[in-house]
């Protein structure tokens, strides 16, 4: 459904993403991996249309540049890493914003489909009991769940995630990833995410794309891309030995 051809992003003279091509099918979870500065977040920002790029990205055959912001939001959702809320919006109000691109007509009426989508999002994320709570009173983990519920309510075909849980404790990390995984399977949606935590990427991803200095080193099935020799070349260390050593004390 998503096809990127010869995608290049430059910051002045510096090429952050260099001639990248890949495709994504419904139900895929593509993990973008690579060391710092490899171009993972830049690639994600280009797809989310925050950054100008060269090349061609199509969604079901349609160039994403030709989509209006609302039409793009119906196809592609983004969950950012950090959120800071200034005003005392309720959980329900923030989740409801996810329906923005779907509301039409003179009064932007929220139809029953919209209400159902919202209810489902609140239900899946376990936020239904907190729906009238002010977002100012929530913890970081709860707030991340609120924005996850928002993007579920938005119900896009593709979900883009930039390190969605790396500032959360382990319980919330697992929770957020499980929620996304269930949603992806149930609704047959595709996910692209930037993840630094390689064991986490292996656990949840169906495919991976390994980047190094803006170029694609390898892409495809998880096992191929996460092969020890391939990771050693890119990360300049024995990743497998390191992860094994980390777990050693618990064995």
């Amino acid at each position: 459904m998503l096809q990127a051809e010869h995608l290049t992003v430059r910051y002045g003279d510096f090429t952050a993403v260099d001639d990248l091509s890949f495709s994504l099918n419904a139900g895929d979870w593509l993990m973008l991996a690579g060391p710092n500065g490899a171009g993972k977040s830049t690639l994600l920002s280009a797809l989310a249309q925050g950054l100008p790029y060269q090349g061609r990205v199509t969604l079901n055959g349609q160039n994403i540049r030709s989509l209006s912001p609302a039409a793009r939001a119906r196809e592609m959702g983004v969950l950012s890493q950090h959120h800071r809320v200034e005003y005392a919006y309720t959980v329900e109000e923030i989740v409801g914003l996810g329906r923005y691109a779907h509301e039409r007509g003179f009064l932007f009426h929220r139809d029953s489909e919209g209400k159902n989508a919202m209810e489902r999002a609140l239900e899946i994320t376990g936020l239904a009991p907190l729906r009238h709570q002010s977002a100012l009173a929530l913890s970081g983990g709860e707030l991340q769940r609120v924005f996850l519920a928002q993007v579920f309510a938005q119900n896009p075909r593709i979900l883009l995630l930039d390190e969605p849980a790396n500032h959360l404790d382990l319980k919330y990390q697992q929770h957020i990833f499980d929620l996304i995984d269930i949603w992806r399977r149930q609704e047959r949606r595709a996910v692209i995410s930037v993840v630094h935590d390689l064991p986490l990427a292996r656990r949840y991803g169906s495919r991976a794309l390994l980047l190094h200095k803006g170029k694609c080193v390898r892409q495809g099935a998880m096992d191929q891309v996460m092969a020890p020799d391939c990771l050693r070349d890119v990360y300049e260390m024995d990743v497998y030995a390191w992860v094994r050593d980390l777990l050693e004390p618990w064995n």
Partner: peptide, 18 residues
């Protein structure tokens, strides 16, 4: 609706399709 989205955050407004 757009002002609500901006008040939550400009990036968030862009994400939801404003």
């Amino acid at each position: 609706r757009e002002l609500n989205a901006f008040a939550v955050g400009e990036d968030n407004a862009r994400n939801v399709g404003v």
